[in-house]
């Protein structure tokens, strides 16, 4: 049990560090730690395949992506936190809400009576189709859940296309044109209204 408590403490600590770090790179590092702890937790839950996927995909790809973008943006002089904070105390209601929500969830979970659930077998066996193993996972993915798998592939393709469209071409800004006479004509409409108001 101590192990679990240590792990959970580490998880929460890294989470807090992520959201409260001063620099975004620190947040990324915090998040990395969070993902690793989470992978360990998955291992305790017999989800071996998922633990590996977590580390490979999440911390190995997504976080790297984050780092790349931070690097890209940091080429500017001071890319973050320039303007005045327009909602300085918004953390307070957020925190209060979070606390309440948390209490509700914990309260309901603790109160719920979980009965008669067959537990998965303990321990990591070497069997290829043990619960949570790669074989078990693969069978489920390619037979029962084939459709979601294919749709996910489509989703990823859409995401790639989207990213390319969004950030791909760096077009130069169109030249500022002189205001057309038509645009100036639209101005007088405001004045009579102003006269009415004044």
């Amino acid at each position: 049990m101590i192990a679990f408590w240590l792990l959970s403490f580490a998880l929460i600590a890294t989470g807090v560090f992520t959201i409260t770090a001063g620099k975004p790179v620190y947040s990324v590092v915090g998040l990395l730690g969070n993902f690793v702890i989470l992978a360990i937790l998955y291992l305790t839950l017999n989800a071996e395949f998922l633990a590996v996927i977590q580390i490979v995909v999440y911390s190995g790809a997504i976080l790297i992506l984050f780092l790349f973008v931070i690097a890209l943006l940091s080429s500017g002089v001071k890319p973050f936190d320039i303007g005045p904070d327009r909602a300085p105390r918004i953390g307070v209601p957020a925190f209060v809400f979070a606390l309440i929500g948390l209490c509700v969830i914990v309260f309901s979970v603790v109160r719920a009576a979980v009965t008669g659930a067959p537990n998965a077998p303990e321990g990591i066996t070497g069997q290829a189709d043990a619960f949570g193993s790669v074989g078990d996972f693969g069978v489920a993915l390619f037979t029962k859940n084939l459709l979601p798998f294919e749709v996910t592939a489509l989703l990823l393709m859409v995401a790639v296309i989207g990213v390319v469209l969004l950030a791909g071409d760096e077009k130069p800004a169109p030249p500022r044109r002189k205001p057309h006479a038509r645009d100036l004509e639209r101005e007088p409409i405001v004045k009579p209204v102003e006269k009415l108001i004044r």
């Binding site: 989800a47 790809a61 992506l65 996910t152 990823l156 790639v160």
Partner: peptide, 29 residues
Amino acid sequence: AKLWANNTGHIFAFLVITVAAAEAAIGLA
């Protein structure tokens, strides 16, 4: 998934990871 000995949970988590990746990519773009 562990509780009910049903690996659909794993599948779902896997798909969540995938979607999270896609969404992070677009968000960063």
